[in-house]
């Protein structure tokens, strides 16, 4: 036993040295990479993660959009208003409504023409044995950490100082990277402009003190828009007391579009 230990010591004298070297190099590499990531040229380009707000004035507003599933009747007023307000071409939608039907044999989803004209009645045979059915409005979630902004090669899509995820139509190439990156399928290539298009939370309206068009026309107040920094606003009050949820939390996009009464079947 004593001999064996001696042999080991004799045969591999360089191992502790090389390991130390290896570790030192590894540390150096990690430190360099970290420094580059934090202070490097592209570090602050894409995200709130770095905590750098830059030269912009600190956000006065913290806008949020709240959708109450228990109030939505699937009338499609929002879809029609959005189309008219933003001149969205036929067959494309910035917002749409999906109908979820949960049965013992599975979950069925339909959205005929984006619910532009509401929903047809389900046939009798299908209507029996329904466990749950809800209409779920969908749109851009205006994420705090938007994947679409990260992938844009020309910086044509961005998060505005007020928190809106917008598209710079003058610089968009129409490459559709963002269309693929969006986990909520909220983006499309506008067939008229050949540019990326999406819900802007009606930025042009909010800037003029109006509500987004879909919120304006919703007969059930199922769609609400407001400022969470204003404690008196309707959204703040709902946000405080209700159990809100977001779509696809596992994507870590940190949406600012909150759902109330979202059935767990909804994706």
């Amino acid at each position: 036993m004593k001999n064996m230990k001696k042999i080991v010591e004799m045969e591999m004298p360089s191992i502790p040295d090389s390991r130390r070297e290896f570790l030192i190099r590894l540390l150096e590499g990690t430190a360099t990479a970290t420094v580059l990531m934090v202070f490097g040229p592209g570090a602050s380009a894409h995200g709130p993660e770095t905590g750098i707000s830059g030269s912009l004035e600190p956000a006065k507003h913290n806008y949020a959009y709240i959708i109450d599933i228990n109030k939505c009747i699937g009338c499609g007023n929002c879809v029609r208003a959005c189309k008219r307000e933003n001149s969205v071409p036929a067959d494309y939608f910035r917002t749409w409504v999906e109908r979820y039907v949960v049965r013992a044999d599975g979950v069925y989803v339909d959205s005929p023409n984006g619910a532009l004209e509401g929903f047809e009645k389900l046939n009798k045979k299908f209507r029996d044995n329904i466990q749950l059915s809800r209409t779920v409005p969908k749109m851009c979630n205006h994420c705090h950490n938007p994947p679409c902004v990260q992938v844009c090669p020309v910086g044509a899509t961005f998060k505005s100082p007020e928190g809106f995820v917008l598209v710079d139509h003058d610089y968009c190439l129409g490459c559709a990277y963002c269309v693929q990156a969006c986990p909520y399928a909220a983006r499309f290539i506008n067939p008229v402009k050949h540019k990326s298009d999406k819900c802007t939370w009606c930025y042009h309206r909010v800037k003029k003190g109006k509500l987004p068009a879909c919120v304006t026309v919703c007969p059930q107040k199922a769609r609400l828009f407001g400022d969470l920094n204003d404690v008196e606003s309707e959204v703040s009050k709902i946000f405080e007391k209700d159990h809100w949820m977001v779509l696809k939390p596992e994507m870590h996009t940190d949406p600012t579009c909150f759902y109330i009464g979202l059935p767990r079947e909804v994706v």
Partner: peptide, 27 residues
């Protein structure tokens, strides 16, 4: 672009461009 924002990586002129869309619904 002249108004390029290096901190947030976008063209500041795009804000005005987006805000200039005409209103259809008045409330």
């Amino acid at each position: 672009p002249d108004s390029w924002n290096y901190e947030e990586w976008y063209r500041e002129g795009a804000l005005a461009l987006n805000a200039s869309e005409p209103l259809a619904y008045g409330g």
